[in-house]
């Protein structure tokens, strides 16, 4: 008798637990207010990343095509995975002093881990994060970027 009742109580509790679980899913099924799915390519215009989102390293240029990078190479030494290469030239100023200016600031997006050490340690705040995330390409070489725009120069008052 004991095992007999146990058998049927088990069946009863089994059904009960299943129904409890299904009531949860059923509730979500009938409450469209809880839809969480983002329609990514359709909502592309509206989709905004958080302002601190780290999508891509950029070097902001102002309207005169000037940036703030002195070419000191601190970002290069601080980068843990060697995704930044700074190639700088030495030029002679009219007053005879030698000055280092940046030739190319190469950034390997393919290797970047977005740890933000370059942006944080940059003494002249020349680097910043961009919020773009659509980087997928067919060719890996496209992921190596030169951050300073052609013909750009450094803003005057930065040393």
């Amino acid at each position: 008798m004991n095992s007999f009742t146990k058998y049927f109580t088990d069946i009863f509790w089994g059904f009960r637990s299943l129904l409890i679980g299904m009531s949860v899913t059923g509730r979500y099924f009938f409450s469209p207010g809880q839809i969480v799915t983002q329609q990514y390519p359709e909502n592309r215009k509206k989709l905004k990343m958080f302002e601190r989102f780290k999508g891509d390293l950029i070097m902001p240029h102002d309207e005169h095509n000037q940036h703030r990078c002195t070419g000191c190479g601190i970002c290069e030494t601080n980068c843990p995975n060697g995704s930044i290469e700074v190639i700088s030239d030495r030029i002679e100023l009219p007053d005879g002093k030698k000055k280092r200016i940046i030739d190319k600031h190469i950034y390997h997006l393919s290797m970047c881990t977005f740890c933000s050490l370059c942006v944080k340690t940059c003494p002249s705040e020349a680097l910043d994060w961009d919020q773009t995330f659509e980087h997928a390409v067919f060719d890996r070489t496209k992921l190596t970027k030169i951050l300073n725009k052609p013909g750009s120069s450094i803003i005057k008052d930065i040393e």
Partner: peptide, 15 residues
């Protein structure tokens, strides 16, 4: 297709 990022956002994967 190469998708850079560490890790890429889900949207980046969809892209």
């Amino acid at each position: 297709v190469y998708i850079p990022g560490c890790p890429p956002r889900p949207e980046a994967l969809l892209y």
